[in-house]
Computed example of a mutant assay.
Amino acid sequence: MIVHDFSNKKSVLNQFISEMRDVSIQKDSMRFRKNIERIGEILSYEMSKTLNYKSQLVRTPLGEKEMRVPVNDLVVCSILRAALPFHNGILNFFDKAENAFISAFRHHPDGDDDFEVIVKYLASPSIENKTLILTDPMLATGKTLENVLKAFEKHGTPKQIHILSIIGAKPGIEYIKPIFPENTHLWIAAVDDTLNSRGYIVPGLGDAGDLAFGEKL
C-alpha cells in the first residue's frame, strides 16, 4: 500500500482538521460537515495527480488548445453515514464519477469492548476494471475497510483502489496494508498514534457521524 500522509505538511488542511478536533468548534454540526467536504476536495485534488490522462483538443472562441484531461472510470463508494459530506467533496471534483454506498456499523454482542463490523447494505455499479475510491473518514481499527472490500467481491475486480480518510490510527493503517492490493493508495489528512480499548482513535475527534448528523440511539 502506498500511503500519502499529509499530517506534517504545511497546508490549509491543518486548519480544517484543527477545527474538527476542537470540542468548542465541533458543536457546530454545519461547520463540521463543511470541513469534511473541504478535506474531501483537497484529497481529491492530490489524488487526481496520479490518475491517467489523455490529450484533448478544445475549441475556444478564439482558436484551439490541446489540454490533458483525466480518462479514468471512477466509482466513489462512501461508508455511511459520516462519509456523506466527504462524498460530496469528492464529487465536487469528480462530477462524472459513478456512485456507491455501503452501510457498516460496529456491533458489541456482549456489551464489552470486543466488537464485529456488520455490513448490511451495498448499492454499487460494476467496479470491473474501474478505479474504486473508498471513503472512510475515520480509519480506526481497519476492520470496516476489510469488510467493505469483502462485500465488493461480487461487483468485479477494480484495476485500482484509492482510500480517502480524514484521520487514521497507525494500528489501523498497518492492519489494512496486507489486506488490500499492493498498488492501493491511501490518502489521509492526519494520523494519530493509538486506539483506546474500544477501538476509537486517540486523540481523534470523537464520533464523526454523531458530530455531523446528531446522536443515534
Score class of each variant (00 low, 15 high):
Phe105Tyr: 15
Glu64Phe: 13
Val71Pro: 12
Pro109Leu: 06
Ser78Leu: 00
Ala100Pro: 06
Ala82Ile: 05
Ile102Tyr: 08
Asp112Met: 02
Glu98Asp: 13
Phe93Tyr: 15
Pro109Gly: 07
Asn92Glu: 15
Val71Thr: 15
Phe93Trp: 15
Leu91Cys: 13
Asn92Met: 11
Pro70Val: 05
Gly89Trp: 09
Phe101Leu: 07
Cys77Pro: 03
Gly89Phe: 04
Ala100Ser: 06
Ser103Pro: 11
His107Lys: 05
Glu98Leu: 13
Asp73Arg: 05
Asp114Gly: 05
Gly89Thr: 12
Arg106Thr: 09
Ala104Trp: 09
Asp112Cys: 03
Met67Pro: 08
Asp110Leu: 08
Pro109Met: 05
Met67Trp: 07
His107Glu: 09
His108Glu: 10
His107Ala: 04
Ala82Pro: 08
Leu80Asp: 00
Ala97Lys: 03
Leu74Asn: 09
Lys96Asn: 14
Asn72Ile: 11
Leu74Val: 03
Ile90Pro: 15
Ile102Val: 04
Leu84Gln: 13
Lys96Val: 12
Asp112Glu: 14
Ala97Gln: 08
Ala97His: 03
Leu74Met: 08
Leu84Asn: 09
Asn72Ala: 14
Val71Tyr: 13
Phe94Asp: 11
Ile90Val: 14
Pro85Trp: 02
Met67Phe: 02
Asp114Cys: 00
Arg81Ser: 01
Asp110Ser: 02
Val75Lys: 04
Phe101His: 01
Arg106Asp: 07
His108Pro: 15
Val75Trp: 07
His87Phe: 03
Val76Asn: 02
His87Gln: 13
Leu84Thr: 07
Glu64Asp: 12
Phe115Val: 00
Ser78Thr: 08
Ile79Gly: 04
Ala97Ser: 12
Ser103Gly: 07
Ile102Ser: 04
Ile79Glu: 02
Ser78Pro: 04
Asp113Gly: 01
Gly63Arg: 10
Phe101Arg: 01
Lys96Leu: 12
Val76Ser: 05
Phe93Arg: 15
Asn72His: 04
Pro109Ser: 02
Ala100Gln: 04
Leu74His: 09
Ile90Thr: 15
Val71His: 13
